[in-house]
Design a protein around this nucleic acid. Structure first.
Lengths: 129, 129
DNA sequence: TCGCGATACATGCATATGCATCTACTTATC
DNA sequence: GATAAGTAGATGCATATGCATGTATCGCGA
């Protein structure tokens, strides 16, 4: 708990200093970027990100307001929507990754050998089962 | 990041279902409980908990409003205060620990051997240096 | 095909957080 | 011993979060 809080503070700080949005935005942009056609339904984003439904709903509204995603109605399900990453969204994701990756390198990679990092990942994955 | 978010959600959930306050309160109550005389200055709590100054200020206000701590003026430094845990605060900390410990057991201890847990702690500590 | 429970997402309200700044006091400087 | 710089903590404002519930649509069973 303490380690991740410390790390999160460091990363958020790095992003802020670079004039970029908070890390939460990255998670969503990343999922969209990875997704086929750069589009996902909110429900699928929710499952991938561990975001609560109401938080995701509002985060998507913010992303749309900033022009990083577009939101379309689902033609097959009147209740559903599709979030589609825009080219600006792709650019922001990339800019964020540049900073985020640097953060990880500086605050994590420099403290652990590759082998240790792998073992850490394995242990954490065991907990998440 | 994901593992701790998942864990935090689980723990917060357990606390909520038991009618207890959020985990953040525990951190402060724990520090006070450990501290000599059950009292600390906000500044010292801040250092121990990684809480931002303004967040701690308001968290202490909430704790005081709920009667879990008392706040006294520092006789030696007119700017300073002392937070003092009350008997109700002690009781709440204990009740929270009962639930929290159960959460840890269920969500962490059951997934790792003692040896693995030790190694995990060591690796995380390496990062926090 | 009607009606009802389930599903997808949004939102009003209370509370928590971040940021900047404020107030009150203390300590060092001259 | 007056004044400026520093320190401890609080707070107004904007924004984010949690909770409960709302709205719209879907799909199933009679």
């Amino acid at each position: 708990m303490r380690t991740q809080k410390r790390l999160l503070d460091l990363v958020e700080n790095d992003l802020k200093r670079a004039g970029l949005p908070p890390l939460g935005w990255y998670d969503v942009l990343l999922e969209l970027w990875r997704a086929d056609g750069g589009r996902l339904r909110p429900l699928d984003i929710e499952k991938r990100t561990l975001l609560a439904q109401y938080n995701l709903s509002r985060l998507l509204a913010r992303l749309e307001r900033e022009g990083l995603i577009g939101v379309e109605a689902d033609p097959e399900d009147g209740r559903g929507k599709w979030a589609v990453i825009t080219s600006e969204g792709l650019a922001v994701r990339e800019a964020m990754w540049a900073v985020y990756a640097g953060s990880i390198r500086e605050h994590v990679q420099s403290k652990l050998s590759e082998d240790e990092a792998t073992r850490l990942g394995t242990l954490l994955a065991r907990i998440s089962t």
